Simulated assay, not measured.
Amino acid sequence: MTRKAFVTGSAGFIGFHLCQRLLAEGWQVLGLDGMSDYYDVTLKQRRHQMLLQSQAFRAVEGLLETPGLVRGLVEEFRPDVIVHLAAQAGVRYSIDAPRSYVDANLIGTFEVLEAARAVPPAHMLLASTSSVFGANAQMPYAEVHQADHQMSFYAATKKATEAMAHSYAHLYTLPTTMFRFFTVYGPWGRPDMALFKFVKAILEGTPIDVYNHGDMRRDFTYVDDLVTGILRLIDAVPEERVGDFDSLSPVAPWRVVNIGNGAPVPLLAFIAAIEAALGRIAEKNMLPMQPGDVPATWADATLIEALIGPLPRTEIGAGVQRFVDWYRDYYQV
């Protein structure tokens, strides 16, 4: 029988790519997206339009936090798997508009958990973020490391969703995997992310803002590699411990898993890859560190590879070139 997945945030960057792959692999997919105006809604609408070319995809537009909306959809669709990706994203924006993070991330996730309690899926998978590691300076970041000192309200809400999901996994025996994503990039990416902003500015001949005077590193993860990780983890239901590095809860079928490239790239090397792909040199506006930001991220991939085997790791130059090719085609520049 055809497997069914309910995906929140299906018009988002990662949700769009995940739905594409699920459909290509023969799944039936129900997507929910709030089409918030945090960034260009037209980009989100174009993503959904592409997904709707498949008869196996159905799109619903609505806010996660609407009481009973998600539960009603789940009761009707009865998915085998729920993948909860929808969230209010962005570290900086959480300083200016914290209420939107309460609504989308906390209340929205509560609605998803309630829906799963009513109609339990075989596996529930929810997105968190590498930002939850916050002030932890021990690298590479492992899932069993302390993550108690978040440095942005965005990260705080995502850490809260990990705890919320754990309680539901314990109380209602809901098999749950949390993902901690590491700086995802690629075609159809978000306009608020550095790669998108840098490419746009360089093509327009305007300076790019380089924070902490360029002394930063990020574990840039190409979106196709990340989606491969999500797809393989669907069948890695949290049941048995795979080693002392496993984050599996002692009291619930719940685990948190890093999905990252496992190789941090200096910010200036990332910018150099963009310059090479564009054939232009960026004018750099060197600035101090922004509030809520961290100087480096680096994923320990031991757990995910123990669960699903080695992941593909797209080299930064190749990944950036694919984004630039998409950007030039999409915006005709």
Rank of each mutant, 00 (worst) to 15 (best):
M1D: 13
T2M: 01
T2K: 02
R3P: 08
R3Y: 08
K4D: 11
A5R: 07
T8W: 12
G9W: 09
G15H: 04
F16A: 13
H17V: 15
R21P: 10
G26A: 13
G26E: 14
W27M: 11
L32M: 10
M35Q: 12
V41C: 15
V41M: 15
T42L: 15
L43E: 13
K44Y: 04
K44M: 08
Q45D: 09
R47G: 13
L52H: 13
Q53P: 14
S54Y: 14
V60K: 13
T66S: 09
T66H: 08
P67L: 12
P67M: 12
P67E: 11
V70L: 07
V70Y: 06
V74P: 09
R78E: 02
R78V: 01
P79Q: 10
V81G: 04
V81W: 13
A86E: 07
Q88V: 05
G90E: 06
S100D: 09
V102M: 14
V102P: 08
I107E: 06
T109E: 11
V112Y: 02
A115Y: 06
R117E: 04
V119P: 04
P120L: 06
P121Y: 09
M124A: 06
S128N: 03
S128D: 01
T129H: 12
F133P: 03
G134R: 10
Q138N: 01
E143H: 13
E143I: 08
H145W: 00
Q150L: 03
Q150E: 05
S152I: 05
F153T: 04
Y154A: 08
A156H: 08
K158W: 03
A163I: 03
A165I: 03
S167M: 05
A169R: 06
A169H: 10
A169F: 08
L174D: 03
T177E: 01
M178P: 10
M178N: 09
F182K: 02
F182Y: 11
R190T: 15
D192K: 14
M193D: 13
A194C: 12
F196K: 13
F196Q: 14
K197M: 15
F198W: 14
V199N: 08
K200P: 00
L203E: 15
T206P: 11
P207W: 09
Y211W: 15
H213C: 11
D215P: 03
D219E: 05
D219F: 03
F220V: 02
V227S: 12
G229F: 10
G229I: 11
I234D: 05
I234R: 13
A236P: 06
E239G: 03
R241Y: 03
F245E: 07
P250L: 07
P250F: 11
V251I: 09
W254A: 12
R255Y: 01
R255G: 01
V257Q: 09
V257R: 10
V257C: 07
V257W: 09
N258V: 01
I259F: 12
G260K: 01
N261M: 01
V265C: 11
L267Y: 09
L267W: 12
L268A: 04
F270A: 14
A273Q: 08
A276F: 00
A276W: 00
A282E: 07
E283L: 03
N285A: 05
M286P: 00
M286A: 00
G292N: 05
V294N: 00
A296E: 06
T297M: 06
D300R: 00
T302N: 00
T302V: 00
I308Y: 02
I308N: 01
P310H: 06
P312Y: 01
R313L: 01
V324R: 02
Y331I: 11
Y331A: 11
